[in-house]
Design a protein around this nucleic acid. Structure first.
Lengths: 245, 245
DNA sequence: TGCAAACATTTGTCAGACGTCTAGTATTTA
DNA sequence: TAAATACTAGACGTCTGACAAATGTTTGCA
């Protein structure tokens, strides 16, 4: 039986992404006023209530700007948000969205690792094994980030090999392990490159790097994947919209 | 004539903050299920549509978690978000919310500064003057951040003095200049402390610091204030919720 | 000319209805 | 007995239509 709606996610999400596209492809220019909610909901074939849910998300993301009695406007500086840190994308996706080719170097998979602290974070007993994936990520063959990923081993297939992990880890977890990451909580820290990181990333020792320590969860708050990503600050820029309450 | 609503901001914002409070004061525990939308909207005395707008924001902030057919739940790790980077607070507010006393050292106000690049960012002609405020921020008398703030001079009163700026700059702009900052766009960068910063912050030269470069806007996208804040990473931690689309 | 009132437009809020999904329970079946 | 299926209550998702509040513009009078 075929589905009427090809994408089963909620309608307001699809509407939000549709408008996202229209902003991206220039249908609506920065600073421009959107059609009124009445018109826009009619154009998109959804109710005004649903459209408003979509607009609320866009507003929270800083992409539009609403004023009662006036209208809804595309935020002027919307071009900045290409790699907004609020959106959880894999490094592969981020690199490819810049038009570069994503690659992996020095991939190393350790199985059977025990770590009491992390076991606690994962809410598993401390004798459960973790898999640790170390790798250097490249863009057009230049090292841009170093990643350590930790995942409870029982999520992975028994016959997992290093070659399985050369592409996006997110994709692998989703397609081969039935794991769906929906959000992550990240700590943002500056660190100085030690000898090892300096060598991996091709920078001088002491260079300031951005470290993202993140626990990834599914839609039921189950911790699935912990990762430490070290970014070269000359290759990655992170933006964030901060809302005053 | 007295207002029925003491706070003139939209109702869904007030509802959102009310729930925020209830999460903070323990009325709703992490992991706990909220009352259904029908019940909760009745309890709060608002329509379900308004409540849903509030919940949508909380969801985007990662504080709650909604599942069709099941319910709305407080996110387990909600305690982490005390200084979530998505919320734009002044440094004064952030320090005080940690229960420490916020102070200012080495305040220095320069008037009549010309800067072509910044003038362009502010969308003003390049012969308009800027005011530059440099200061070291302290928590319980210990240096924790160094700030450079740039604001077009014509926003400020003619008789502004350094003593006006010892408290929160946000408060001063709002109360004395009629400027209301509603959001900011921040670039997040790691930097190594140079000699000057090292001295100001009492750390060793080369220590990794977190630099937030931010342009602040009002609700019409007018740029009002540009600032560069250097944070000691051992004193400040920034968290962010990253949503997968 | 200047200013206040009226108006049109837009977002904000409300009430109620029905659709769809989920999880648990009861029933049926092998 | 155990597994698969069917049912059901309750939750979020979506829709409709109406009115309130805020804002910008137009109109008309002094």
């Amino acid at each position: 039986m075929s589905r009427i709606r090809p994408d089963s996610r909620p309608l307001y999400i699809l509407v939000k992404e549709k408008i996202d596209e229209q902003i991206a492809d220039g249908t609506y220019q920065p600073g421009e006023q959107l059609p009124s909610e009445a018109k826009l909901s009619e154009e998109l074939g959804v109710s005004r209530a649903t459209l408003r849910e979509a607009l609320r998300i866009l507003e929270k993301e800083g992409k539009v700007n609403r004023r009662q009695g006036v209208g809804t406007f595309i935020t002027e500086k919307v071009a900045l948000f290409k790699s907004g840190i609020g959106e959880l994308n894999s490094i592969t996706e981020t690199i490819e969205s810049m038009g570069l080719e994503a690659g992996t170097n020095n991939l190393n998979l350790e199985l059977g690792v025990l770590d009491e602290t992390l076991a606690q974070e994962f809410e598993i007993s401390s004798d459960r094994e973790l898999a640790v994936i170390n790798r250097t990520r490249t863009a057009n063959d230049e090292a841009v980030a170093y990643c350590k990923d930790y995942v409870p081993q029982f999520y992975l297939p028994d016959d997992v090999t290093e070659t399985d992990l050369e592409e996006s880890l997110f994709d692998f977890l989703q397609q081969s392990c039935g794991i769906y990451i929906t959000y992550a909580v990240a700590d943002i820290l500056p660190v100085a490159a030690d000898k090892f990181l300096a060598k991996q990333l091709g920078v001088e020792e002491g260079t300031a790097l951005l470290l993202l320590k993140q626990m990834h969860y599914d839609d039921r708050d189950n911790p699935l994947l912990y990762s430490k990503n070290y970014f070269r600050s000359d290759k990655f820029e992170f933006h964030v919209v901060r809302n005053r309450n």
